[in-house]
């Protein structure tokens, strides 16, 4: 193997680890956080527990625990990526209020950052391009 080729492979490997390392830090969302926040963005103004869970279930095909979604949303609220607001209590919910969530500008920035990092990882993967899975 030519030295230039070896260097290229080395640099690509290094770049991969830098991205993965960066994703573990505070800068990027984890898989589950990303799913929750993307579902939240897709729903717009009607984003509260039930539709968020249903959206994730429809897109991923797996059952979602409402409690886990709220735990994740609470974490995102703490980080400042999501804001929440209580709605009015309704009879359909036994007189209990809904809690609406909305993504904040820092949240949108973080989603973009994560998207960029993931796109960098995905680009040029021959297995995916050939449809091997």
């Amino acid at each position: 193997m030519a030295p230039a080729q070896t260097d290229q492979i080395y640099l690509r490997t290094l770049y991969f680890f830098v991205i993965v390392e960066e994703m573990n830090g505070r800068g990027h969302f984890g898989e589950w956080e990303l799913m929750v926040i993307l579902a939240l963005m897709r729903l717009g103004d009607d984003a509260y527990g039930v539709p968020i869970c249903r959206e994730i279930e429809e897109q991923t095909g797996r059952e979602v625990a409402v409690g886990s979604v709220y735990a994740t949303l609470d974490r995102l609220v703490e980080k400042g990526f999501v804001s929440s607001q209580m709605g009015e209590p309704t009879a359909e919910r036994g007189g209990r209020a809904k809690r609406y969530f909305r993504i904040t500008p820092p949240g949108v920035r973080e989603v973009r950052k994560t998207q960029r990092a993931l796109m960098n990882l995905w680009n040029g993967l021959s297995q995916l391009e050939r449809g091997i899975g």
Binding site: G49, V50, Y70, G94, R96
Partner: peptide, 17 residues
């Protein structure tokens, strides 16, 4: 355990219905 217990109960009731 959290202030959202009542909200979760409402969500679960809505889905159950």
């Amino acid at each position: 355990f959290s202030t959202t217990d009542s909200v979760i109960a409402g969500d679960l009731l809505e889905e159950f219905n």
